[in-house]
């Protein structure tokens, strides 16, 4: 029964999370998509636990929490995969074209530079990068974040190209 309570909480999350995303866009809330997902997860988990305490005499918290955490993380995983994936943007760009075909040169010369500029706008909007004359420079917040990322990359032995390594 505790697993079932966890699944009820998952259903609440699956309804609440997209509702919050849509409302945030419609009402221009100053909250990022990840923050909204975290709020939805906390609220639905709290409701699930309350439901379990009230309705299941031998409610086992970790049974409910395990299935809830797994399903919510799978949701976040899928959300992250479609949210800002460059590969997926390229694929969707081709599929949405008439005749479902695109010249490679056009993707290289127009679509990818467009994605590049879109990401720069995100960095500027978040106050991590600012315009300086005809160029761009990192703000103090941007330098701090880049420093933390660099330390984590070095600790985990991750390169700094962001390219996929097909050698293995």
């Amino acid at each position: 029964m505790s697993f079932a309570v966890g699944l009820v909480a998952v259903a609440v999350f699956a309804l609440l999370a997209p509702t919050l995303q849509i409302m945030a866009r419609a009402r221009a809330w100053p909250l990022g998509p990840v923050t909204l997902l975290a709020i939805a997860a906390l609220v639905s988990h709290g409701l699930g636990v309350a439901l379990g305490i009230v309705s299941v005499p031998q409610f086992r918290y970790w049974d409910a929490a395990s299935i809830f955490a797994f399903c919510v993380m799978a949701y976040v995983f899928a959300f992250g995969a479609v949210y800002k994936s460059v590969s997926l943007e390229i694929l969707l760009g081709i599929v949405e074209r008439t005749g479902r075909t695109a010249p490679l040169s056009e993707i290289m010369e127009r679509q990818v530079p467009g994605l590049f500029q879109g990401r720069i706008s995100i960095l500027v909007d978040r106050g991590l990068v600012e315009r300086a004359n005809s160029g761009f420079v990192a703000t103090a917040a941007g330098r701090n974040l880049a420093g933390r990322v660099g330390r984590l990359r070095r600790a985990f032995g991750i390169g700094d190209t962001s390219l996929y390594d097909f050698s293995n």
Partner: peptide
């Protein structure tokens, strides 16, 4: 992608 853009600029 975005994070690496930032680290490259820094």
């Amino acid at each position: 992608f975005t994070l690496t853009l930032l680290t490259a600029l820094v």
